[in-house]
Amino acid sequence: MDSEVLFLFLQQGIASGIVSGSVYALLALAIVMIFKTSEVPNFAQGEVFMVAAYAALFLIVFYGLPMWVVIPAALLFTVAGMMLFEAGILRRVKKALGEPVNLVIATLGLSFLLRGLVRQTGLGDTPRSFPSLVSTDPVQIGQAMLTRLDLAIVGTAVAVMAAVFLLFNFTRAGRAMRALGMNPKAAALVGIDIRRTHAFVWGLSGLVSAISALLIAPKILMTPEMGHVAILAFAAAIVGGFNSLPGAVLGGFIIGIAENLVGLFVSASAIVVTPFLAIMAVLVLRPQGLLGGRPQMRKV
């Protein structure tokens, strides 16, 4: 491969990688905010993402509603669903035995339930595409070709990330969430409503997942298996350090770019193993992730 083509591929890979990476970063953010506050890796995050997209599609296909109704409705639906799962199911699981394994299994159960439900509606029988709000006219950046939709995706994703950071760092709710993540008992002592904060985090995580779903939906073919992207988000979270929100964002972009470069330089079918290789590389070289703090020894 001569250097000119190499350089072109590199530019295209990075540009496309930033687009898909921004979506992975959002989803990773949604995963990490839950993990930070409740120590549960939500294995259903990908299916929540999928359901959000299908909820929007359902409203369009069956009721022909306009987008300005569909989008808020789908977001609200996802937020409510996540809060309901946390308050109605997880809380009960925690009370029943409360081992981390049990919580993880409950989220695995949710992922299967959601996928089965969507399959049952028949909407997923044929792969569908989601209408795009923004035109897919090409835009050239350097030598890389993107579309206007791509730019809109990155723009929205970055805005959402910024909003999450502001929320976490400068609001009362954000302080409550951080306190909960550091020390639940102390948080309760200083008067933070633990239950409400948990529900809030799950709701927020649902919101962020739903936004990422609606962003990427016009670019991909929707199937009930689309929740599979969550593995990329999990890889992103591990690369970034599983308890770091900025790490999740960084990891998302790294995975997005790595995946696109592998697709361009190796083969399209090798993309699937990228997250596994990234996870392995991080575990061997820097187990706590790029921005993760050193894991603390449990106090005895």
Partner: peptide
Amino acid sequence: PAVQEMTYGLILILFMMFVP
């Protein structure tokens, strides 16, 4: 397959809630 998936999911969730 759809019913199978829903059954798996429901069984896992219900067991974790009531028969952990």
